[in-house]
């Protein structure tokens, strides 16, 4: 009796898990069950938001991108192939949106680049004597953020995916639609570009 209960419990757990997998939720959403899509949204909105925020550096822009990404995902659910991870597919949409957004706001980024250069100059020359260490740390973080935002979108994508969100190379390759070796190469190039940009901050001669 107890054994049958355990078996039934396990079966119900398994059935529940099967119902809650991304693929199952996508299928239910495809069939018109909007609640299933809302579960997906709740599950991954933070992931998408974090990535979008790291790419844009602005909360309102990141929220707009998240919203647009999920709208596009909903409208293109029929294109989702079950063999791919839903998050990979979703992040690919977000990456494209972020790239588009970066193109549209290129002028703004140029201004930010100038600001970043000013910030780096301040950090390097040390003209302002700030005794508060945490403030120094905060300013460094801000300068790094600005340097990151001033990077071209393709470099920024790599840094965010690999070094901030710490996604593995296989995921990155899937998101970008390239090979793992290609993803590694892109990450290396992006890191080097970032280093060149913040070399003054690090006190290098470059």
């Amino acid at each position: 009796m107890v054994e049958s209960n355990v078996v039934g419990f396990n079966a119900s757990i398994t059935g529940r898990m099967e119902l809650d997998t991304d693929v199952a939720l996508v299928r239910r959403a495809r069939d018109g069950e909007y609640a299933a899509f809302e579960i997906l949204f709740e599950r991954y909105r933070t992931l998408v938001y974090r990535f979008a925020y790291q790419m844009t550096g602005r909360r309102d822009d990141a929220e707009d991108i998240v919203q647009e990404a999920f709208v596009r995902a909903y409208q293109n659910l029929h294109r989702y192939r079950d063999e791919a991870k839903f998050t990979t597919w979703l992040l690919r949409i977000v990456t494209n949106l972020c790239t588009d957004q970066a193109r549209m706001t290129q002028r703004r980024f140029l201004l930010e680049q100038q600001e970043a250069a000013g910030g780096l100059e301040w950090m390097t020359l040390g003209e302002v004597d700030d005794p508060v260490q945490n403030l120094e740390s905060e300013r460094r973080k801000l300068a790094l953020r600005r340097a990151l935002n001033a990077l071209p979108a393709h470099h920024r994508t790599m840094i965010v995916l690999r070094d901030i969100e710490e996604r593995d190379y296989h995921d990155i390759a899937s998101i970008l639609g390239c090979t793992i070796g290609g993803a590694k190469l892109r990450v290396l190039r992006a890191r080097r570009a970032l280093r060149d940009r913040i070399a003054p901050l690090l006190g290098e001669d470059k």
């Binding site: 909007y34 925020y53 909360r59 919203q67 790094l144 070094d163 969100e165 913040i198």
Partner: peptide, 28 residues
């Protein structure tokens, strides 16, 4: 130098909380 960059990037992980909601998505 690269370790400093790496640690700095890890320090950027914190993001402000979003104000997304199901209602907002639904209306969109």
């Amino acid at each position: 130098a690269y370790r400093e960059i790496s640690s700095g990037l890890r320090g950027l992980r914190d993001v402000p909380e979003d104000q997304l909601s199901n209602e907002r998505l639904r209306s969109a």
